[in-house]
Design a protein around this nucleic acid. Sequence first.
DNA 1: GTCTTCAATGACTAGAATACGCATGGTTTT
DNA 2: AAAACCATGCGTATTCTAGTCATTGAAGAC
Lengths: 223, 223
Amino acid sequence: MRILVIEDETKVGSFIKRALEEESYAVDLCEDGAKGLELAFATNYDLVIVDLMVPTLPGLEIVKGIRQAKIQTPILILTAQSQVDQRVKGLDAGADDYLTKPFAIDELLARIRALLRRGATESPGVLQIDDLLLNPATREVTRGGQRIDLTLKEYALLEYLMRHTGRVLTRPMISEHVWNQDFDTFTNVIDVYVNYLRNKIDRGRVKKLIHTVRGSGYMLKAD
Amino acid sequence: MRILVIEDETKVGSFIKRALEEESYAVDLCEDGAKGLELAFATNYDLVIVDLMVPTLPGLEIVKGIRQAKIQTPILILTAQSQVDQRVKGLDAGADDYLTKPFAIDELLARIRALLRRGATESPGVLQIDDLLLNPATREVTRGGQRIDLTLKEYALLEYLMRHTGRVLTRPMISEHVWNQDFDTFTNVIDVYVNYLRNKIDRGRVKKLIHTVRGSGYMLKAD
DNA sequence: GTCTTCAATGACTAGAATACGCATGGTTTT
DNA sequence: AAAACCATGCGTATTCTAGTCATTGAAGAC
């Protein structure tokens, strides 16, 4: 899950970034409104967080811009206390939720989960394929009841795969959602991590869940 | 499931009531603090929601009153944005969770579900993991029957951890709840205090309770 | 049609670079 | 003096790079 954060207060921004990364989201931080909008156009984010008071381009315009481009990514706006009326305009412009600064980081995380859940195939509290279970709330992964320890990146990759079970996921798609903007396209990190995951999830099992689709990418499915 | 809502803003109150009733909870709405406390004594609710700013009796006193009566009903407090420190006091007084106004109704519902779920299996009052006991009322901590002296910060940290056993707690979450500081702290105070706690709680024991989740944060659990 | 060859693609591994967390000791505050 | 906090250096888990090895499937030879 890759998230764009448009926030000019360096402290707040890097705090948010850190917090999100610890939740295994891939995060791009941008302190400039115009650049932020460009990024939103260029990358297929899963969520965009915008501070309404951001230099070079008002946050409201960013929201409008994104929606005019028919991009349906959930947008969460951050407003200062004084801008109560702004947030209504923000929602009108197409934002999905708002948060007033200062806010508790737990609350931000909860809203993000809610927004991401909504956008996806509705229900999931825990994701499941066959006997493989992943709980986004606790970041706990089990297969056949047995706990599986994953590193942050491994987890992020698996979550992305599980959220798109049965679909072929190309390498560019994977890198776009699991890694952030300083990802180097000309490496084989993805292959390496798929291999790591296989070792932890499929190795020694009869039913393999991770399949490679030659020439395209990878796919997670039970059959 | 019967829920008591103590909230004096009529609009907010009836909004909550409607929403909860649509979820098929039974709801009693009360706009007065003192009466609310009486109701809480008289009726065996499954959950109590208290706005901290409520007339005739401060919300904080309601929470304390309920807990002093040894009523273990989960309590969720509502605070205005400006009362950040209040919510900490609220949790100290025995509340189980908080929500900052204004909030999304979905979130309220989610928290309620979480609290009811938790309440089903656990019985607060004293917190316990394995042979580690913490009594919020007396601030007494023991492990294997042996008293453990903690400083204020150490205690606050441990209580936070114990109130969220089995969940990964990121540093931002911890710093927010235990240090009450928003958006700074690029130091390693948290690590240091976790280390202090480990020395007093896990050092020399076979069963470690404090676990670090590399890249994310810390977690308290028995297994 | 079958077999061989070969280039493209992916699997796997070892180890380098990096980031992370831990411990410790010093400094400031209470 | 005790508690709270800060800063450093060290060991190590994680991430990534770079290379070799295995597999696949298509083109050409027979």
